[in-house]
Design a protein around this nucleic acid. Structure first.
Lengths: 190, 190
DNA sequence: CCAGTTGCCTAGAGCTATTAGGCTACTACC
DNA sequence: GGTAGTAGCCTAATAGCTCTAGGCAACTGG
């Protein structure tokens, strides 16, 4: 019997590739087994169940994106940092739609993925350092920033913007301009 | 043989309730049949397949939300309209998590749901009338606005904000303040 | 080189999706 | 008020995915 050399890591990586190729919903234990030329049951020695596979995939994606974002942020500040971070985020979603989708699944508290999620929050906060916002405005701004980036990317991916001729890239840049403006001049009160 | 009186409409509504109760991913043809006390196969006289069921569900949700948003918008303008619209959107997502999730599924061009989606776009545009933005800034602003609302609601639902003590409602209000501010003073150039 | 562990297999049960074909309860019309 | 037709629900059957249990073969370390 040929041993293929399965490990949780190799399975997760293959799942990520599969997700990008055919979509997250088609990432199944069977499909993954097929890709390795083994039987479905063999995978259960390495992963707990199908959900576990998806959580690992989410953690992988969150980590990868965090690495890229950290690299993009190095040596930048202010709007420069904001734009670099935002573009990294959006580009990752475009290059790796399956992994991006995986990032959105509900992560129970205290999985490995929670750690990666915290890295993201810290980076977003780092961007805001250039804008000198005091708490609790800083937290509010972190939430708005994250929301806008995530929302834009996810609506773009869902095709929400394709019914209008205005180039999606142009709106993206103006959205970043707007975010920069609002962060520089965060409303102190209504 | 007892006839239950199935129709596509009743099935869609039941699917919506099921989605809100147990989550969209558990809305299955079998589960729905079980809820009506009939066999799975019987449903296929009313719906094309499982995907069709979900698309109908998405259309239902989009329509419901559009109705509520239209009602909320009646007689309001400017920030008032913005806040009413945003709160309607967020409240709907909280009251009907399953339906909200259904709204996010990929709608192929030219389903009935596309029509409902257009209603949403028009309403967002109506809100912006109070802010007197010329094209293409208006389109950019529509996209940003929609992105921020959707992103906030979806991150909140995914639990992305629960790791921090700052009340989520407070950040929401400040986010709306920020959106209002940026719309009143949309950046003309970088 | 043998003992123990690990990796992959077969078998099988349970759930979901979907198609084909049949019977029966309504509906409409004479 | 009987009957023709349609529509609603059924059984049967195929196929894919998930997951458990138990077996044997291939590596690993002493």
């Amino acid at each position: 019997m040929a041993r293929v050399g399965l490990t949780a890591e190799r399975l997760t990586l293959a799942a990520a590739e599969l997700a990008d190729e055919v979509g997250l919903e088609k990432v199944t234990v069977s499909a993954l087994a097929r890709r390795f030329g083994v039987k479905d049951a063999s995978l259960y020695a390495h992963i707990k169940n199908a959900r576990d596979l998806r959580v690992r995939l989410a953690a992988l994606a969150l980590d990868q994106l965090a690495d890229r974002a950290a690299a993009a942020l190095a040596g930048r500040a202010g709007k420069d940092a904001l734009v670099a971070f935002a573009n990294t985020y959006r580009d990752y979603a475009k290059q790796h739609p399956g992994r991006y989708a995986a990032m959105q699944i509900d992560l129970d508290p205290e999985t490995a993925a929670a750690t990666a999620a915290r890295r993201h929050a810290e980076m977003t906060r780092a961007i805001l350092r250039g804008y000198k916002l005091a708490e609790p405005a800083q937290t509010d701004a972190v939430r708005m920033l994250h929301s806008t980036l995530h929302g834009y990317v996810s609506l773009e991916k869902a095709g929400g913007f394709r019914h209008h001729p205005r180039p999606v890239d142009a709106s993206w840049l103006r959205t970043l301009d707007a975010l920069d403006a609002i962060l520089r001049n965060w409303p102190t009160d209504t």
